[in-house]
Design a protein around this nucleic acid. Structure first.
Length: 270
DNA sequence: ATGTGACCCTGGATGC
DNA sequence: TGCATCCAGGGTCACA
């Protein structure tokens, strides 16, 4: 589910509603998601104040001053505010109670994560090896050219490699490559400098537009108010196999790359 | 080191 | 109605 835009939309919702608020108690119902939920997490969190809601890649880092709550939404996770006393359903794994504001974590597939980081969050193994933030100024065509140099894998899975660039998942990789007119099968190291200088702004533009639209809601994702994103209505290639390209009318193609579906226009992307 | 595929898990859609 | 199969916003791991 959530790629960078959805996580960022979630982060902003949290910051707005409970930034600076005190967490009264946490209710943890699942013993494990991707990783075991640390024993004693509820006790650790109780009484702490949420200083800041931060994000690194697709990881949410909720800064409680003396430690961070790491949340990853995996493929099917979402965080939303519910009214106090709302009965939890099957896949509602955690509640974080901030006074009258209850932040509830739902994740049917349990690919997400909930961890407590006592030390420097950037030093944590899950965070330390992450690649560049695509919305940062340091993410330039020159940087990308250097990073992709001599890489034989296709450009699309390369963009989805979080060790290289964070936050770009299956939807936004496809959409960005369409925007830049690049065939997703092109060897990463063979994409010309001219094309990379189209790709970098295309990625940035796509992510920013998606954030502005509240993210993409396919099946599971909702924002912290429980509402849906709108960007799925603006996908130009993702999940549009067989439909006419909005630019040239050619049928959008779907192929498999690294166990994932890749959608592209055979005419506009070469 | 780099690239590929299996796998984690549940649920929805589709086809017989 | 039931069952089998495939697919899904992500990421890790083992292995060539």
């Amino acid at each position: 589910m959530p790629e960078l835009p959805e996580v960022e939309v979630t982060r902003r919702g949290i910051a707005q509603r409970i930034g600076g608020a005190r967490l009264d108690r946490a209710v943890l119902r699942a013993p494990t998601l991707r990783y075991p939920i640390p024993a004693g997490l509820a006790r650790i969190l109780a009484g702490r104040t949420l200083v800041e809601a931060k994000r690194r890649g697709k990881y949410l880092l909720l800064d409680f001053g003396s430690g961070h709550l790491l949340v990853h939404l995996g493929m099917s996770g979402s965080l939303r505010f519910v009214a106090p006393g709302t009965t939890p359903e099957k896949h509602d794994h955690a509640d974080f109670v901030f006074g009258e504001q209850v932040l509830r974590l739902t994740d049917p597939r349990r690919f997400g994560a909930l961890l407590w980081l006592a030390g420097d969050p950037l030093a944590h193994p899950l965070i330390a090896k992450l690649g560049i933030e695509p919305l940062s100024r340091t993410f330039t065509a020159g940087w990308l050219q250097q990073a992709l140099k001599a890489r034989a894998l296709a450009i699309k899975p390369a963009l989805m490699d979080s060790g290289l660039v964070v936050g770009v998942g299956n939807i936004y990789a496809a959409e960005s490559l369409f925007d830049a007119g690049i065939d997703p099968r092109t060897r990463a190291g063979s994409v010309s400098a001219a094309r990379l200088s189209r790709l970098v702004p295309a990625i940035r533009k796509t992510l920013l537009a998606a954030i502005r639209a509240g993210g993409s809601s396919l099946r599971d994702f909702c924002n912290t108010d429980g509402g849906m994103g709108d960007f799925q209505t603006r996908h130009r290639v993702y999940a549009r196999a067989g439909l006419p390209c909005l630019n040239c009318g050619s049928p959008i193609r779907v192929i498999r790359q690294g166990q994932r579906s890749s959608f592209y226009c055979p005419r506009c992307q070469r």
